[in-house]
Write a protein that binds this DNA or RNA. Structure first.
Lengths: 365, 365
DNA sequence: GTGAAAGCGCTAACAT
DNA sequence: ATGTTAGCGCTTTCAC
């Protein structure tokens, strides 16, 4: 293709025998340009196929009209929806999006933050790795507003927009309790990240409030590298979104759990892994044993039985995150105290968690 | 936070009493700088927290070191993995990624292309909407290399990196045939896009070659707006990744299809919708009726029965796409003929498509 | 080995 | 209403 230099203001100016400045103003629809000149300029711009150079513009205006999004893993359905919502909202407000994926590596994250500084993005949305945050401090010190998404970073002077996982876990736990369950488990993977610790807290506090015993090993940790289901392995699955991890602890759980127990899973993929582990051992989910998911992924309503799960308001988090960030970007003083916004998840009751026919009152409900 | 102006080369130069030029060369590790000066410069840069300004650099160098990615919908698990692979490969090669999502709207796509032109990205990867391509032509004419991903755009002078869906459909169809099926269906959503027409072609040609009848209505079109499963609706699901669309045609299919029929689904979500529709009608998938998916999504290996499906090489497509694009970007002459690269998918045989116990030979396999 | 000057494409004073 | 000048932060001639 003819890689001809793209036309600039200067080209238009030359061809019309006016000054670059006039062209600039005409195109920017500023006053102080006669209607006729404006018309001629616009026509010539059109004719030449002029496209403004955003870099040059940003350089002089000192705003990039670009936001950075640092995300751990787009294959997490929740994050995928977050990406969509953020891109859309940003676009509505005139901002482009620079995307960096970290795969939960602190090193990648450091490089991503560095790169975003170089580009001078106006603000950054990040799902932080929660392991080493020096780069975020540097970014903040350089004056770039940062909004943390979904995960906290306590020491950092940044706004947070996330999900109230504590409430989500409470709702799930209460639902199980209301269905008659007295033996509950919580299956989680990465115990270090804040959503998980919030869920654990919600789980334990609810049990305590209801006077139900919750031994230490009621919270079971799943190993991300666990051996997957027998048969043709699933394709390379990234990160925590592998049912196999939960599947691997399912056997043990099936052994430990009595009839009428309910297992809460940290995400719907894990719930699915549990489904399979249980049914392979003759346990019918929703009847012999309950399962509650977290996330309401697109497949969850169609599982058999349909999964009761906690729906996360991904689009709301995305939009609120962008709005929060742009408020900082656009207000001169961005040194106000950090604001934490927690959006409420919603328990979606389907069939997987009962009410279970409790041993003591058969044929329950 | 103290939004102090970030330090520039000039600040370093001033503070060291050398010229801006010297600082630039020292930091760029060019020769023609004495070791001592270089050392001093680097130290001062470090001390000041200097971060190079990529925009200024790009402006003079006339390369953005940025790639544009225009994608329809990150919630498509295949595209999510594509995003990861592309971001990673681009990063390895020193490029940042600007992400635009179109939601399959031609209008959004047009604006995305326009925006990428403004930024002067070095190249663009796009999953085109396949409906209105004038903006792509404009982009090409401006000298920006474009690589189309996953979908064709016949008239456009651009490379294509995609999946050999024709071969995928052939493999799936042959597998069903080999299992004894003589009544086959193909369920697809958007009949206009190239992957789907390729699958239809593979499906029909394979049946023809094997002498199996394929009436017109063997290809059934799913309605994206179809009513979802009963009970609490799944969360807002974007685009074609809603099992509900296929679920809605499942009832009809269950009625039409005889025992031992096999239904091929255009993606695993649709396969799942079919699972539920069938089982609600007393049809056991993998026994009474077969299902083959497309995509090998993370949940598919854990369904009951485990889904036989066509695995798509997302990371390979992503990497090949970036490599292809950068070859164009980096070679001065980007006017060589377009190259089409089709990567082979792989049939993953699990349990959902038999071999089915065929009516004529009970207890099959 | 180092500095001065020019310029990437644009906008913002400040003229006229 | 239009033009001139300056400058965003950087790299690249070209002198010395």
């Amino acid at each position: 293709m003819t890689a001809r230099r793209r036309p600039t203001l200067r080209d238009i100016a030359l061809s019309l025998d006016v000054s670059v400045n006039t062209v600039s103003r005409a195109l920017a629809d500023k006053d102080a340009v006669s209607p006729e000149t404006r018309e001629r300029v616009k026509e010539e711009a059109e004719r030449l196929g002029y496209v403004p150079n955003s870099m040059a513009r940003s350089l002089v205006l000192r705003n990039a009209m670009t936001l950075g999004l640092v995300i751990t893993n787009p294959s997490n359905p929740f994050y995928a929806r977050l990406i969509s919502a953020i891109e859309e909202r940003g676009r509505e407000r005139g901002y482009s999006l620079m995307l960096m994926v970290t795969e939960d590596s602190a090193d990648n994250e450091r490089r991503a933050a560095e790169e975003l500084m170089r580009w001078g993005v106006d603000g950054v949305l990040a799902i932080p790795v929660q392991h080493g945050a020096e780069h975020w401090h540097r970014l903040r010190k350089s004056g770039t507003p940062v909004v943390l998404l979904n995960r906290h970073l306590p020491e950092l002077d940044a706004d947070v927009v996330g999900v109230d996982y504590y409430a989500g876990a409470r709702a799930a736990t209460e639902h199980a309790l209301d269905g008659g369950a007295r033996e509950l488990y919580l299956v989680e993977e990465d115990l270090d990240i804040s959503p998980v610790s919030e869920r654990i807290r919600g789980f334990r506090e609810t049990l305590a409030a209801r006077g139900v015993a919750a031994p230490d090993d009621a919270v079971v940790r799943v190993d991300p590298g666990a051996a997957p289901v027998a048969g043709p392995a699933p394709g390379p699955v990234s990160g925590p979104f592998d049912p196999g991890a939960a599947y691997a602890v399912g056997a043990d759980l099936a052994r430990r759990a009595g009839r009428g127990a309910v297992v809460l899973a940290g995400n719907d993929y894990h719930a699915l892994g549990l489904y399979r582990a249980f049914s392979e051992r003759g346990l019918r989910v929703g009847t012999d044993i309950g399962v509650v998911g977290h996330g309401d992924h697109p497949f969850s309503a169609y599982l058999d039985p349909a999964l009761t799960t906690v729906r996360l308001p991904a689009p709301d988090v995305g939009r609120a995150g962008v709005d929060r960030l742009l408020e900082r970007v656009q207000s001169a003083a961005d040194d106000a105290d950090p604001i934490r916004t927690l959006l409420a998840p919603e328990l979606v009751v389907r069939a997987s968690a009962g009410p279970l026919p409790h041993p003591s009152r058969r044929g329950g409900r």
